[in-house]
Design a protein around this nucleic acid. Structure first.
Lengths: 189, 189
DNA sequence: TAGGACATACCGACCGGTCGGTAGGGTGGC
DNA sequence: GCCACCCTACCGACCGGTCGGTATGTCCTA
């Protein structure tokens, strides 16, 4: 659990990285926005990259936990898919800035961290795909479109979400999540 | 139509911007990759931003023309939607690098150009939405999910495509386009 | 011989990161 | 009860290097 100063730095960094991009944001801007000094930042983070990675870590941890929790419920395929989508959309909408940074600056992960991340993402995709394939095998879903394409579509929509979803817009995250889940499930009939 | 030198610069820039990001790519790297000198680059482009914008312009022009051409055919809603999606997916897959730069570096457009772009995108969305709403009104599509959400989903998928589609992958662009169109149309039944 | 198409040398601003130092609170010996 | 000692948290001036951009010159074609 980060202390107050650390948290101030992370919050400011997320906001700035999301709105201007990582490279376009200088360390000076971050410390100014966080109302701390450069010394404080480099006391807590080894480098600017390190700060970025800390943002990733917080998000990845939360999303994987959500997925595992839902799978563990052992619901029928349709309900599992709905739960996964709703949780994905709501948690993404809840932290648009973190999600925007995450999607946009992904290639900045160093070689090693990138490998770890890809493995984690692969696991995520395959878990999701397995749910859909199970539903197709049981006859609950149509097999017209391959499961991997459906996963790509679903994840793609969520990843793109931070680009246009606004928390103060007319559509709440809950309602949007419901609509997206409805649409995907309709496509699977 | 750009001359040979101009084209070499644009090609190199697209490749580098796509793989490393705009900010992380220096003008030096671009001129080195294009095998020209800095003088040549600044002879044709007023600034680095200008070079980026030229990449946008080429892409936007092509996509809008595609959409207009399809609408003009006056096909039934389902076929129009299919044509739009297939053309979107194929043209995006055909130029993954340009599309990747476009999606990733959008916020770098200056204030004025951003306003123009938003207007163009709004027009695009509304044209697409109108097709779907027509289909819903005629009873050809279900009205379970609002047309604007369907448009968001469809465009979202395509925008995310450059992040994972590889031209040398096992699935061809045509086949993928067909699957995506099938899925979206199934969701609209 | 005028002008477009480049080449080369160079500029000032700014970048991420470092480093010597300080303020203040906890702790152990006497 | 007090002081010597230390440690963490933090400060901000400063550094080498790179950045986007420019000024000026040369060459080639018409």
């Amino acid at each position: 659990m980060p202390g107050a100063t650390e948290q101030k730095i992370i919050d400011a960094a997320v906001r700035l990285f999301a709105s201007q991009g990582y490279d376009a944001t200088s360390v000076q801007e971050v410390v100014k926005a966080a109302q701390v000094t450069k010394g404080a930042l480099y006391h807590y983070f080894r480098s600017k990259d390190d700060l970025l990675f800390e943002i990733y870590r917080l998000l990845i941890t939360a999303q994987s936990a959500d997925m595992d929790r839902i799978i563990a419920l052992g619901l029928p395929a349709a309900e599992t898919v709905r739960e996964i989508l709703v949780s994905l959309v709501v948690s993404t909408a809840d932290r648009v800035d973190e999600a925007a940074v995450f999607v946009r600056e992904l290639p900045r992960l160093g070689e090693e961290r990138m490998t770890d991340f890809r493995a984690e993402r692969r696991r995520y995709h395959e878990t999701f795909r397995a749910v859909i394939e199970k539903g197709q095998a049981d006859g609950e879903f149509s097999s017209a479109v391959p499961a991997d394409t459906v996963v790509r579509i679903a994840v793609g929509v969520v990843n793109q979400l931070p680009m246009w979803f606004r928390p103060d817009g007319e559509k709440t995250a809950d309602r949007l999540a419901g609509e997206i889940a409805d649409f995907v499930l309709a496509g699977l009939r």
